[in-house]
């Protein structure tokens, strides 16, 4: 809205973890962008680097993580994520909670058990806007009502352990939006919730991005949630972008990367039954013995000899789409396993 470019641009993010003297690559050349008011799903299995990507954006990485390359543009301002620039880290800190905020999977871990939830909701805003206590309290109550907490006047003084899982997650969301952020990072925020509560929360996110024009980067392994909520998608596997598209529907109807296709085939679908779920053989490589070329190659049905060559190029010819596979599936290549199964 404010500028012509996208809200967020991540360019060539590479991150290494130091584990027991060895240096393991956890993210490799990860790039994507997110527009104002856009929701992008960041999808992958555990260990694919989804959460690390979010943490790198926030500058909240574990102490053993080293960003070796990576540039971020947020709302027109450029940040060097590598090289440990102190000035950039300070600028990033100022954005946390106000420009960028994060919603974690486990609200009971993220919330402080000895401080009433109301105070935690307005913590970041109080510091920024120098609010008085009574003003802050009123604002907290307002926010809690906004996210659908009914008796907010009472719940504002409650502690984390007095609330149910759904309420805690709402408190987290209230805290995340208190500073009217431009970017909301979500790390599996509904995984632990019941399906009816999940739907309410997804509806809340949709309203938030419409009304704040905020970008949503939504990490999950649930493709159905992505299908419902997001505009665009990035599929990660073992720290690498496998497939990325500005248009979500095209990926679901016509996946380009064999890994995306495998994920879709293994996801149970209420509307398509009587089909045997596809179970991807083997398991994800550990960071220490990742194959040189495509990390998915050892488990891939379509694997060929040249898959082991390093740095898989983007083979997509479609604008706004990336497929890092030498032998893509899908209509572009004429191999459509998924479409065959769908009928």
């Amino acid at each position: 809205m404010t500028s012509a470019g996208p809200l967020l641009e991540i360019d060539d993010l590479t991150l290494k973890l130091q584990v027991g003297g060895a240096e393991l690559t956890a993210l490799e050349h990860v790039s994507f962008s997110l527009g104002y008011g856009e929701a992008r799903g960041l999808v992958g299995e555990s260990g694919s680097g989804k959460s690390l990507t979010l943490r790198a954006i926030l500058g909240l990485l574990p102490p053993n993580a080293v960003v070796t390359s990576g540039r971020m543009v947020f709302d027109g301002a450029e940040f060097d994520l590598a090289h440990g620039s102190k000035a950039d880290a300070r600028r990033l800190e100022r954005l946390r909670g106000t420009g960028i905020s994060m919603i974690f999977q486990e609200p009971s871990v993220a919330l402080n058990p000895v401080i009433p939830v109301g105070e935690q909701i307005v913590d970041a805003v109080m510091r920024r806007d120098h609010l008085r206590r009574s003003q802050a309290r009123d604002y907290a109550i307002h926010l809690m009502k906004l996210v659908g907490i009914h008796d907010a006047e009472h719940k504002v003084d409650a502690y984390e352990f007095e609330l149910s899982g759904g309420l805690k997650q709402r408190v987290m969301i209230a805290a995340a939006v208190a500073g009217k952020p431009k970017l909301i990072l979500c790390d599996e925020p509904t995984t632990a919730l019941d399906v009816t509560v999940q739907r309410q929360i997804l509806s809340l996110f949709t309203h938030l991005r419409d009304e704040l024009d905020a970008g949503l980067l939504y990490v999950t392994h649930d493709l159905a949630v992505v299908a419902q909520l997001c505009d665009s998608i990035t599929v990660l596997y073992s720290g690498n972008v496998m497939e990325s598209s500005a248009e979500l529907g095209s990926v679901f109807d016509d996946p380009g990367h064999p890994y995306t296709e495998a994920l879709l085939r293994s996801t149970p679908d209420v509307d398509r039954i009587g089909r045997r779920l596809y179970s991807i053989p083997g398991s994800a490589p550990s960071l220490s013995d990742r194959p040189l070329g495509c990390p998915f190659a050892p488990r891939c049905e379509y694997r060929q000899d040249d898959c082991e060559q390093a740095r898989v190029p983007d083979t997509s010819t479609v604008e706004g789409r990336e497929v890092h596979c030498r032998h893509p599936v899908g209509h572009e290549s004429g191999r459509v396993q998924l479409a065959k199964e769908a009928r």
């Binding site: 906004l146 009217k180 399906v195 009816t196 999940q198 739907r199 997804l202 509806s203 809340l204 996110f205 949709t206 309203h207 938030l208 419409d210 009304e211 704040l212 649930d222 493709l223 159905a224 949630v225 299908a227 419902q228 909520l229 997001c230 505009d231 979500l248 529907g249 679901f252 879709l264 996801t267 679908d269 209420v270 509307d271 398509r272």
Partner: peptide, 26 residues
């Protein structure tokens, strides 16, 4: 019925029903 209506659908229309309800009025 409520439970079934809440299932996220892999092939459902996007944001179907998620925009229902009043504006948050920030």
């Amino acid at each position: 019925k409520e439970l079934l209506a809440a299932i996220p659908r892999l092939r459902g229309p996007r944001t179907e029903g998620l925009r229902d309800g009043s504006s948050l009025a920030f």
